[in-house]
């Protein structure tokens, strides 16, 4: 080997870590994260260490998107790389456990596109990160007996279970309810809705242990969350736990009326209009002119894609 070949080999090896990041992670995300880190005055090495977690995830065939997003969130919120490090490390661990438990416990994929398995892994990892244990997931997976659940069903069931537990219901009490929902063929958004509604009414379930049994019976009858909790709302139950949301709903109608009445032609002058997202007035103007709301946006379209940027959205 000639001297210049050795020198060239050395140069390539020295650049390897940088090249490997750029090669395996989405360039835009890496660039955004580096810029965020630089703006916050963090040493490039510390940012590189964070990106290494995302790269590890990708190399293991795990979705790297939630890791990159969490790094951006942490940096944007002013968290130091040292603070972000354990958060993303745990996320990679949860993604790994999620994939494992999904493989062990389910009949396989959802029978749809492969990308859905990645979504199932992300949703399951979130459930594990929110306090659901692998044993609880395995119990949930057995809820249909011999007919095993698929990955997506189990992942959303686990997230529904996480929400239910956050409402103060024990795993032991919650698993039969979510398991029954899986048996009844609840869709992903219904599994999440069930958990969210129980969480909102946490106080009721903590003070009345029979309440969760009532919900289970309703689910056994094939009732869906909208029916179960709509009946609750009408009977006045569910108020104590869901106060904030309910208040918001109550205020909404009066808010709309009030805004229509008090809408002004001129603006208060606080801040400029140029960079502001559309207020209700502007939406009305666009609507009246028959224009396309989205086409007038500069950056708003980011959230409008269907690439699944939402978190475990129940978008059946």
């Amino acid at each position: 080997m000639k001297w210049w070949q050795i020198l060239l080999f050395g140069l390539v090896m020295a650049m390897a870590p940088h090249v490997s990041h750029a090669a395996s992670l989405p360039a835009k995300d890496v660039q955004d994260i580096n810029q965020l880190g630089e703006a916050r005055g963090h040493p490039p090495k510390s940012i590189e260490r964070l990106l290494e977690h995302a790269k590890q995830a990708k190399d293991q065939g795990l979705p790297e998107r939630p890791i990159l997003n969490k790094i951006k969130e942490g940096l944007a919120k002013g968290a130091s790389p040292e603070r972000i490090q354990p958060v993303v490390r745990d996320m990679v661990g949860n993604l790994r456990d999620a994939r494992e438990v999904l493989r062990d416990t389910t009949s396989g994929g959802s029978g749809k596109e492969g990308g859905r398995n990645s979504r199932a892994t992300e949703v399951m990892a979130e459930a594990l990160g929110r306090g659901v244990t692998v044993d609880e997931v395995r119990s949930l997976g057995r809820s249909r007996g011999k007919s095993r659940v698929n990955q997506e069903e189990l992942a959303f069931g686990a997230k529904g279970l996480a929400l239910t537990k956050e409402g103060g219901v024990s795993g032991k009490e919650a698993i039969p309810v979510v398991g029954e929902a899986l048996r009844q063929g609840f869709r992903s958004n219904e599994l999440l809705e069930l958990g969210r509604e129980i969480k909102k009414r946490g106080n009721e379930f903590r003070t009345d242990r029979n309440r969760i049994q009532d919900i289970k019976k309703s689910v056994e009858r094939g009732e869906r969350p909208d029916k179960i909790f709509d009946r609750d709302r009408r009977s006045g139950s569910g108020r104590s736990g869901g106060g904030r949301e309910s208040r918001a709903e109550d205020r909404e109608s009066s808010k709309k009326v009030d805004r229509d009445r008090s809408r002004r032609d001129d603006r208060s002058g606080k801040g400029g209009d140029r960079d502001r997202i559309e207020s209700r007035d502007r939406i009305d103007r666009v609507r009246e002119s028959g224009g396309n709301f989205d086409s007038q946006r500069d950056r708003g379209g980011r959230g409008d894609d269907s690439s699944g940027r939402g978190r475990g959205g129940g978008g059946d």
Binding site: D275, R276, I277, R280, F293, D304, S306, G310, R311, G312
Partner: peptide, 21 residues
């Protein structure tokens, strides 16, 4: 960025895809 509305109210509309955000 949200726009100033009446009083101390700030509001704005963001187009979002289905799911949780």
């Amino acid at each position: 960025l949200l726009a100033p509305e009446d009083g101390d109210l700030w509001s704005g509309v963001v187009p979002l895809s289905a799911g949780e955000h």
